[in-house]
């Protein structure tokens, strides 16, 4: 597998709704085969519109999308048969059985019956015991898992998960993460949108950030955190300071915790972080300290900073 093997190609896609609302502006994105790509963005940023265009639910105003080389408009059958979609809303037929609805999905995507595969999928999402039950008797979390089972029923190569863990409890979220990792290990390309930054941090190989219909960046998660992440050194002082000494003014320090801590923010990518100079300066000023520790900014902080930037 080549890391640059693009399975979904989105080229200059824009979407303007009849109301005049511009949901997407000139989005270009290549999704690599086998990766987990997390799309982050605030509400109304355009994440769901982008997914909906690739899956055939919304027509793009401009641009071109191919799935494994198949144009989603001209060759929609080949393109769509490779895709599974788990929508954001819990949309299910209340009176249908679990088994019935999963079989329906498989047939709809042009696949003949395969009881062994259906059983495997239902077991993977812990619903095999409920296979004969009506959907209305399932809990919200079970319905979410059922939607995943439906999307996997036709053995897709690409899976779109639109807010897959919205409204599910912590334990179930972790189970879902396990399911997504298992899918990635089996070669399924996964694109997920999420509001939970820790979910993206936990699962994604790459992160895409959408804001106001524009794709602000797409980057390897680790590289993104390295590039945009700030690191902070917190120095616990022996004796609290009422104010910062003038000689320390050039370091951009902040006094915290009632003056008992000095917080120094530095750039991990810089040639010189300034830590040595700071510690020397503290020594010269006779400011004693008893402990120091560093923290790195989380993806959430990076995300908030990105979407706050003027576009």
């Amino acid at each position: 597998m080549e890391s640059t093997d693009i399975v979904v190609s989105i080229e200059s896609v824009s979407k303007t709704y009849d109301t005049g609302f511009k949901a997407l502006r000139d989005v270009t994105l290549g999704i690599r085969r086998g990766e987990i790509l997390a799309l982050l963005g605030p509400n109304g940023a355009g994440k769901t519109t982008l997914i909906s265009i690739v899956c055939g639910l919304v027509n793009a105003t401009e641009g071109k999308v191919t799935v494994n080389g198949h144009d989603i408009v001209d060759d929609y059958r080949a393109a769509r048969s490779l895709i599974g979609l788990v929508p954001q809303e819990l949309t299910t037929d209340s009176f249908e059985s679990v088994m019935g609805t999963v079989k329906f999905s498989r047939g709809l995507f042009g696949k003949g019956p395969d009881p062994a595969h259906i059983e495997r999928v239902l077991r993977d999402v812990w619903l095999w015991d409920r296979k004969d039950d009506e959907i209305r008797t399932l809990s919200g979390g079970m319905k979410r898992r059922l939607l995943i089972a439906k999307a996997l029923s036709h053995e897709p190569q690409i899976l779109f998960l639109d807010e897959p863990t919205a409204g599910v409890d912590v334990e179930l979220r972790k189970d879902m993460w396990g399911t997504v990792r298992k899918l990635r290990d089996s070669g399924v390309t996964t694109i997920l949108t999420t509001h939970y930054i820790d979910e993206a941090e936990e699962l994604a190989d790459r992160i895409g950030v959408i804001n106001n219909g524009e794709l602000i960046l797409v980057e390897e998660k680790t590289r993104l955190m390295r590039m945009l992440g700030r690191k902070q050194l917190t120095i616990e002082l022996h004796d609290p300071l009422a104010e910062l000494p003038e000689r320390l003014g050039g370091f951009g320090l902040e006094l915290a915790n009632g003056g008992s801590e000095l917080v120094f923010t530095y750039d991990t990518q810089a040639d010189r972080t300034g830590i040595t100079a700071l510690l020397d300066e503290l020594n010269d000023a006779n400011i004693g300290f008893k402990d120091l520790h560093t923290t790195q900014s989380s993806l959430e902080e990076i995300f908030v900073n990105l979407v706050k930037r003027p576009t």
């Binding site: 979609l85 929508p87 709809l108 995507f109 042009g110």
Partner: peptide
């Protein structure tokens, strides 16, 4: 959504 996203 399922009908519209299916290869039908």
């Amino acid at each position: 959504y399922e009908i519209l996203s299916a290869p039908v």
